[in-house]
């Protein structure tokens, strides 16, 4: 229990304190008030990282909620032969380290990599420079996220689906409801707690995205900082520029964003919601 306090609570306090200090090396520090925060918001790179991370998070939400939801419903409908096999295979990417996800997609997204080959041979699209174009950085990262997280989200939606009483569907079918009506009127409303849970989880995860861009862009922000995320910037500020105070201030801002979304979760689920 003490370990929990020492390594969770104490570092938070320390980080908040540090965000108000100016560091000269590891040992000496002085109080600088809000200067670190001022510096952070004046940093062009920080604002870009904030914008990138927000776009990335929204992008992952737009794909990683509807897609797994529909797939989970289809897999659960009893109409797909061998649904367990599909579930398992789609889940496999979740087992890979994010490092591996990064290296594999570096290879696939390369200019003469497989994706371009596939696109040009089937759709006749000219090869795109996925990894070298600033505007393609976030789509590339969202593609990686889709690959890695779809299986897990299907899993979450599935555990929500099995809790919906089957009798509801049978009763509705007797009353002549169509499949689409069943989906909109029964599945979706009753799945709301699960959906909200997955949404909040995705937002919290999205804002913390680090490893994928770190691997894909060699620890940098990618072309024109198009793949620079907040977590990446914090890491670089702390361990490349050794600007601990500024990094701590960025950490506090990131924590504040995540805190707001977590509060929403707590409000809708209650602290003990996962108790069932």
């Amino acid at each position: 229990m003490i370990v929990f306090l020492v390594f969770k609570v104490y570092p938070v306090i320390l980080a908040v304190i540090m965000s108000f200090q100016n560091f000269q090396g590891v040992k000496s520090q002085e109080w600088v008030g809000l200067t670190n925060y001022q510096n952070v918001f004046e940093l062009v790179r920080f604002n870009q990282a904030l914008a990138n991370t927000t776009v990335y998070t929204i992008g992952t939400l737009l794909i990683l909620i509807p897609l797994p939801l529909i797939l989970a419903v289809l897999l659960d409908s009893g109409r797909v032969v061998q649904s367990t096999v599909f579930r398992t295979l789609i889940f496999l990417p979740a087992l890979t380290s994010l490092v591996v996800a990064g290296t594999v997609f570096r290879l696939i997204l390369a200019e003469d990599g497989f994706l371009n080959l596939l696109l040009s041979s089937t759709l006749g699209i000219r090869p795109l420079r996925w990894l070298e174009t600033a505007d393609l950085a976030l789509p590339s990262l969202i593609l990686v996220a889709t690959w890695r997280w779809t299986g897990i989200n299907i899993l979450y939606f599935n555990s929500g689906l099995v809790n919906i009483p089957r009798e509801l569907y049978e009763a509705a079918v007797i009353d002549g409801a169509s499949p689409l009506q069943l989906f909109w009127r029964i599945t979706l409303p009753l799945l709301r707690p699960t959906t909200l849970f997955v949404v909040v989880l995705s937002i919290i995860g999205g804002y913390q995205v680090f490893v994928e861009p770190f691997i894909i862009y060699n620890g940098g922000g990618g072309p024109g900082d198009g793949g620079l995320t907040m977590a990446l910037l914090i890491y670089r500020t702390a361990f490349t520029s050794f600007n601990f105070g500024t990094a701590a201030a960025m950490g506090v801002i990131l924590a504040a964003i995540i805190f707001v979304f977590s509060l929403i979760q707590f409000r809708y689920f209650g602290v003990f919601s996962r108790e069932d």
Binding site: P11, A15, A238
Partner: peptide
Amino acid sequence: LLFILILVSQMIPFHLLIVSLFLMII
């Protein structure tokens, strides 16, 4: 209180902790 505190610590992004944890292990 302790239990709630521990649960709340779940929401702390790890990036807030890295600098302090790094100084601690040094």
